[in-house]
């Protein structure tokens, strides 16, 4: 535990930005911890990271992280990150979004970045509700569940983020929970190492709003529910549909290869002889060996 804490401190703007804005017990802190430990495991230089966010509880994550951090407008993190990645293709670019930010107002950017297969990692914290604005139902709120704008139960049905991501053309998708913190860390490592559009969906708890409205209890109780109801994708194949009813599948669900956008465009420039004559060839990627494995 002590070792883990030390690692995290190195990646945080410790003295400058704390205390943070999140409610006590919020899963975003666990998510951020897993993400930073993944960076540490991969020995990625903080100076080589660009972290972009939109608006919402998760949108506040970058300000605590000691990277280049760009806090933009609601839903637009991935669009902003697209420009940053193309301008600095050697940087490790990550976008962190919530379910509302990433899939409602930012849904169009999400699917199109996946389609382009531009090299970035999206950490999508799914707490099934709009937290910062006070508990309105989101694109991942389950049918019949309560939100402050679904006081009679949600009429709509939620996205399956895996199917959405896969269908849109991403090359990597994994789902974790804030209970399975070490698994989450390893999934994030894998996503960060993937050349292409990678998504890690993090099932998180908003006990303050979603939990209270839907009588799912405290942070501890909600996180315990994840422990009891998450089924690893590897184990799921041995279970019947009835056994999987109401369960959350976790683990690595998609890992395929497709040409990456920036590399394709670089190849086009080379093919057309568009590399500036007075400048050397594109620099070698500064990513550590470990990432390439």
């Amino acid at each position: 535990m002590a070792v883990a804490s030390t690692i995290i401190y190195d990646y945080l703007r410790g003295k400058k930005k704390f205390p943070h804005v999140w409610c006590p017990g919020c899963g975003i802190g666990i998510t951020m911890g897993a993400l930073l430990r993944a960076f540490a495991d991969l020995e990625i230089d903080k100076n080589d990271v660009v972290m972009v966010s939109g608006i919402g509880c998760t949108g506040r994550m970058p300000v605590y992280c000691d990277f280049h951090t760009l806090h933009t407008t609601h839903g637009r993190a991935i669009a902003f990150a697209t420009g940053a990645k193309i301008a600095k293709p050697n940087m490790k670019v990550i976008a962190v979004c919530g379910d509302g930010d990433g899939l409602a107002i930012g849904g169009n950017h999400f699917i199109h970045a996946a389609r382009r297969n531009i090299d970035m990692t999206v950490v999508l914290v799914n707490n099934k509700i709009y937290g910062m604005t006070g508990g309105q139902y989101s694109p991942t709120t389950p049918h019949t569940k309560l939100g402050s704008t679904a006081p009679h139960g949600n009429v709509e049905h939620p996205f399956d983020v895996y199917e959405l991501t896969k269908g849109a053309g991403a090359t990597y998708f994994a789902r974790g929970t804030v209970y399975h913190a070490t698994l989450l860390q390893s999934l994030m490592k894998k996503a960060l190492s993937k050349k292409g559009f990678s998504v890690v969906e993090v099932m998180s708890n908003c006990h303050t709003l979603y939990g209270r409205l839907n009588r799912e209890g405290s942070a501890v109780k909600m996180i315990e529910w994840m422990k009891e109801n998450a089924v690893n994708i590897k184990a799921a194949s041995r279970k019947t549909p009835e056994e999987l009813e109401g369960k959350v599948l976790i683990g690595e669900m998609l890992d395929i290869e497709r040409p990456e956008y920036c590399e394709q465009y670089e190849a086009l420039i080379d093919q057309l002889g568009g590399r500036p004559k007075d400048k050397p060839e594109a620099e070698e990627s500064p990513e550590p060996e470990e990432i390439k494995k």
Partner: peptide, 13 residues
């Protein structure tokens, strides 16, 4: 929306 954001991201890049 994306276009305007992307040029901002590239500018910071």
């Amino acid at each position: 929306l994306a276009s305007m954001n992307a040029i901002l991201g590239a500018s910071w890049g």
